[in-house]
Structure formats: structure tokens, C-alpha cells
Deep mutational scan, measured.
Amino acid sequence: MSIQHFRVALIPFFAAFCLPVFAHPETLVKVKDAEDQLGARVGYIELDLNSGKILESFRPEERFPMMSTFKVLLCGAVLSRVDAGQEQLGRRIHYSQNDLVEYSPVTEKHLTDGMTVRELCSAAITMSDNTAANLLLTTIGGPKELTAFLHNMGDHVTRLDRWEPELNEAIPNDERDTTMPAAMATTLRKLLTGELLTLASRQQLIDWMEADKVAGPLLRSALPAGWFIADKSGAGERGSRGIIAALGPDGKPSRIVVIYTTGSQATMDERNRQIAEIGASLIKHW
């Protein structure tokens, strides 16, 4: 067993022997301040990774656009098919120029040779490549099948209805392509620590998230040296922004954090800054 596999296998073990965790309302004060600064709703939840206990939450059962955070769930569904012998990570998928959609920095470079399922998941999570996500959605049967996968996990809230990039439209009061912070946090925890996926697939999923290259201005910008984070960000229309993450000190994750916002007129930089400040408060009061 590799060191990384050992780390993920012992996530519940280490967490069980940690000192009790206590909620700190100071972080919620910052979440509410972010709402004021952005002029928009902000949803927040913080779960203990081992027990699933909610440590703090704000608007945990209000719907927010998922945006690209759905790509972690998508690759979880792909990995479940791999575990069941219905898919192979090494299978190569070929596609054409007509398949390319807006923001496809990886797939646009491989029109000639195609990409493997493993490479597509890596591109979808680490670079948020939209064509990679659409190609992977095709392998599982489309958005409705991802929703069905989530329902089978016990998540009857999260739903995907459309493809990239239309799913980022974020129309107010439109339930399409949305989740709730509580539902997303619980589902992410199941994917990373539950028995739904094999140990190898859980490790692969967290490795992809740990290698995320496009979430630097968010929670990662607030992390002290030595902290662990595996995350996936999302951005959408109407001032929408979000991030889902597993993080913790001492090089291992111990909490799940989900943050979503929508309806702001603020710039992307300002949305990023507010999420980073929430992260800084979380870490300060850990």
C-alpha cells in the first residue's frame, strides 16, 4: 500500500482519535458579512469528516447552483462504474471539434489522439474542462443518470439537468442544476469515506481534487503551510461562485467545507476574496 493510499485508508482512524471539535460562531459572522459585502445569498456548511456531524452552517438547506462543483460527483459516478466493471479508466475516447464547448483548455489539445477516461476526469476536476465533463456525462448516460446515481446514494436534493455550459445559467428560483450545502457536503463525505467506492477509487477521487489547479484564489489562499486540501470550485452566471473541499491540518483532511453564493453584482475577484476570507476565519478558529 502506498503512503497516499495509507493516508486515505486511515482518515477515519486518525479522526477518531482527534480531540473533540467545537464550532466557532466567528466564522458564521464572516459568512454573514460576506453576504453584506456581496449583496447576495451565501450558503455555508462545515462537517466533521469522521462523524458527519454538522459543526457550523448557514442557509444549509437553500438551493444554490452547483456550477462546476458537480464534476466531482460526476467522476465519482464514473469511478463507481469502474468498480462495477462497467468502465475502464484506460479506455480512450475520441471526439471532434464539434464536441468542444466553451472553456476546454485540455480537451482542445487532444482532438487528434483523444483522451482516456482517467485523463478526462483529471481534466474535468483539476482544470474544470467543460468538454471533458460533457464527454464523461455521455459515458454514464447524461445528466439524468448522474441525478439517479445521487438518488441511489441517498441524495434526493442534488440534481443535474443540463450539460456544460448551460448548467451554469443560475436563474433565480430555478431548481435545475442545483444542490443544497448540506446535501453536497453529505454526498461528498460519502464519496470520500464511505463504502460506495473502493479504496482505490476513493484515493483516485481525492487525488484529482488535491491536484486542483484553478481554485488557488479561494480556500487555498488562506491555508497555512502543512495543511491538506482537496477541492473543486465552480463559477456561473449572475454572480455565482462555489467551492467544495476536504481539508485539515497535519497533512490530512478532517472536515468537509461547502460554500456557495449566487445573485451578486460583485466582480469575480471580490467573490473570490470573500470566500478566501471565510476560509481564513475557519482556519483561525479551527
Rank of each mutant, 00 (worst) to 15 (best):
E26I: 15
T27D: 04
L28E: 13
V31H: 01
K32Y: 12
D33S: 07
D36I: 10
L38N: 12
I45E: 04
E46V: 13
L49V: 14
G52N: 08
K53F: 09
I54D: 12
L55M: 08
L55K: 13
E56L: 09
S57I: 07
F58A: 10
R59N: 15
R59E: 03
R59L: 04
P60L: 14
E62D: 07
E62H: 06
R63C: 06
F64C: 01
P65A: 12
M66V: 08
M67V: 12
S68H: 02
S68E: 00
L74F: 02
L74P: 01
G76W: 05
G76F: 05
G76K: 00
G90C: 07
H94E: 08
Y95C: 03
Q97W: 09
D99L: 11
L100H: 05
V101M: 14
E102F: 08
Y103H: 11
V106I: 15
T107L: 08
D113P: 10
V117D: 02
L120H: 03
A123R: 01
A123V: 10
T126N: 11
M127P: 02
S128V: 02
N130S: 12
T131Y: 05
N134C: 04
L135W: 03
G141H: 10
P143D: 03
E145W: 13
L146F: 06
A148R: 09
H151I: 11
G154P: 05
D155S: 02
T158I: 03
R159M: 12
N168M: 04
N168H: 02
A170Q: 13
I171D: 15
P172R: 08
E175W: 13
R176F: 10
D177I: 02
M180P: 03
P181D: 00
A182T: 14
A182I: 07
A183N: 14
L191W: 05
L192T: 13
L192Q: 04
G194P: 10
L197V: 05
L197K: 07
L197Y: 05
A200V: 14
Q203P: 01
I206Q: 07
D207F: 09
W208P: 01
E210W: 09
D212R: 05
A215V: 04
P217T: 13
L218G: 04
L218N: 02
L219A: 03
R220H: 04
P224N: 15
W227T: 01
I229N: 00
K232P: 00
S233C: 02
G236F: 02
G236Q: 03
G236Y: 02
G239Q: 03
S240V: 02
G242D: 00
I244W: 00
L247C: 09
P249N: 08
D250E: 09
S254T: 08
R255T: 05
R255L: 07
T261V: 14
T262E: 08
G263F: 08
Q265N: 10
A266L: 10
R271M: 13
R271Q: 13
N272A: 14
A276R: 11
E277L: 07
G279A: 11
G279Q: 03
A280Y: 11
L282A: 12
